[in-house]
Design a protein around this nucleic acid. Sequence first.
RNA 1: GCGCCCGUGGCUCAAUUGGAUAGAGCAUCAGACUUCGGAUCUGAGGGUUGCUGGUUCGAGUCCAGCCGGGCGCACCA
Length: 553
Amino acid sequence: MKARTIALLSDALARAVADGLLVTATYPLGATLATPRERSHGDLASNLALVLAKSEKKSPRDVAAILAARLPKPGGDIEQIEVAGPGFLNITLSSGFWYRQLAAFDVDPALGIKQADPGRRVQVEFVSANPTGPLTVGHGRNAVLGDSVARVLEAVGHAVEREYYFNNAGRQMKVLGASVEARYREARGRESAFPEDGYQGAYITEIGRQLAEKHGDELLEGVHSAFRDAAEVAIFADIRTTLDRLAIGFDQYFNEDTLYSSGAVEQTLKDLESLGLVERREGAVWLLGERVGLAKDRVLVKSSGEPAYRLPDIAYHRNKIARGYDEIVDVLGADHIDESREVRAALLALGHPADIVRPVIYQFVTLTRHGEQVKMSTRRAEYVTLDDLVEEVGVDAVRFFFLSRKSDTHLEFDLELAKKQSTDNPVYYVQYAHARISNLNARLKVEGVLPPEEGVSASDLSVLVEPEELELIKSLVAYPQIVAGAAAELEPHRVVFYLHELAATLHRFYNEHRLLGDEQAARLRARLVLLRVVQRVLRHGLGLLGVGAPERM
RNA sequence: GCGCCCGUGGCUCAAUUGGAUAGAGCAUCAGACUUCGGAUCUGAGGGUUGCUGGUUCGAGUCCAGCCGGGCGCACCA
């Protein structure tokens, strides 16, 4: 419809030029045709006259009037065209158009969502927590965000691979092993030197205790990798369990270590060096900031001879690019923004198409309870893990709440609100809309009323004349654009806001119009089609968020 | 000090990426059906979008400078 309307506007412009009233022959790039947020502004609004005003040296309203006079007379899908405000052309579509849309949605498994053609191969890398401890609430936002971005991309026809990148070799893991060893010794009643910067969580004590149980005193003598290995296995199992609960899975787990064994890290360093982007000084190897567009020089290899984290990270991204993805999404906490920039700069310097790497940055999460902030300290054992959070408020609330803010803003997670089984809680509000329709269908079925078979005609739907009904139809028809926008901008929160609004529109309709006992059979049938599509959209949207759509609550 | 992100009713957040009279929810107040589950709905009050300039037909959105908050500025990952 948009394309058709633009063609009409373009025609009107050409005719105005032919009539000698306007001089701009080509349809301007800056002109948009959008759905106004204000309902009284019609269904489509063009700013064409506003954009042309300057070059035409006429007032926007005059330009709009000239164009309006050359648009086709209302009829067919267009019911009304008017000049409004500073010079907008507001177009109202006929109800017949909307009935046809609804009828089409009813038989379209894709609910109007266009499939990208050709679809792209997209990799989404997320979570990527090293196995040093249970996932935190912060990882939770990462996990849910990454998974939902992947779902949205899949919904518009891209082939998505989910990847988890981890490092089980570095200093962190050594400290982890030493921490476990100390706990093991304690469990065997021996002296132990707990590392100064060791991991203090209770889960470490537990792993140490289990090793003591299994091996007795066997591990007291000598140097063992068993501590580190046991910790890794136990912690990874724990992480996977948590992710499973959240219905999050991965296609690949990528171990940083393979970048060393394959020589990729070394090769990356060589390549940077041969491009003259590297300098050796103070015993370390530096990436020259100026040469790659960064403010400062950055260490690639420490004076100890170990690569700093960013070198393997650059190698990792080269590896990803070499795998041929059309697009690479990195879900990162705000504290990794600079790192992401450094990698990007290095990739560009190495001649890679760094633009296909798209970081999704999220800000930190705070938990509140009764308006008070819940303290989370990783150093001490008093943090709330992601698992604790899921345990307390449930999977649906965790996922919905994490997605209900634009990722790049701080997120305040209200524990009490998330647990409430009432209208205040947006998860329940949306889920209830879905369950309500199920319940209604069940009640009607008892009365012997069943929804019509699929394939009703637009004219069958023309009994839907109430404002609440047309509002629902328009809201449904907007859904594909919401999904497309969420996919293009990697912003699942748009789906959350849309669903809340759709649910509100449904509740309004539901409250105003009673279906049970309606004697007008044709109207009842049409309404059941409408509700069927509403329910499908709710279910689909919740699916993009990974949130359940219950039949009953 | 430098860089990045953010400042929107009392609170938590949106705003179709530069569009029209800045919208929701919570909270407050006032109401609705002899409940297709009231886990719902209607209405009201509440705003100089941190401040000051600038860009243009038009700014919450863009540019500059301040004020305030967060993150980063390791040879930690």
